[in-house]
Amino acid sequence: MNAPPMLEARGITRLLGEPPVQVQALKGVTLSLQPGELTLLMGPSGSGKTTLLSIFGCILAPTEGELKIAGKSTKGMTAEQLAELRRSSIGFIFQAYNLFPTLTAEENVMLALDVRRKAVTNPRQTAREALINVGLGHRLKSYPSKLSGGERQRVSIARSLIGDPSIILADEPTAALDGVNGKAVMELLSKISLDTSRSVFVVTHDSRILPFADRIVRIEDGNIVSDVRQKRA
């Protein structure tokens, strides 16, 4: 892995809550995400997984330590600069899908494209292609309420990929899915992560998805306790 990391975190700590009831959710995490890699972050509830994901997504600022996205340090960035960094470099996949219920699948993807301010000739066509790529060519005009959980998550994946971000952050993407849909979603993420211009980081409790990972990072009590690379299935 000689390529420069897509994301680099050094000595990240994060305090949550207000004094005197403060909790140190992260205690000096150092981790980097390599291109073409699917990394799983696993750990028990309260171990700091979501906090780390939020920091990687530039949604939470670290209390201490430094985060670099595509070589650019986030230190001292304003909320708007961080939003711009998310627009340009990060795609999110949420456990609860977080689709817009009033928009169709196609419009949900178009919205992300609009937010990212990507200049494309035909945004609708671009959104359609993204949905076709995740196997939803037949559900373009469907509203989220008419989609199954697996389909919703695939819309969410299409949305995260639109605009071609270099980092995909997924928060428990299979937690709300049955085995078949969970496997389909992971196969999709696995395929996406083969792109060497991209890194996929998945926070999960779901041990069924371990075979899809190139790397498994375990976190406990705010500390990385293991970081193992494996050959994915």
Partner: peptide, 12 residues
């Protein structure tokens, strides 16, 4: 939904 927009990188 607005929080999602913000997370996706939408400006204020």
């Amino acid at each position: 939904e607005f929080a999602t927009l913000r997370a996706l990188g939408a400006s204020a």
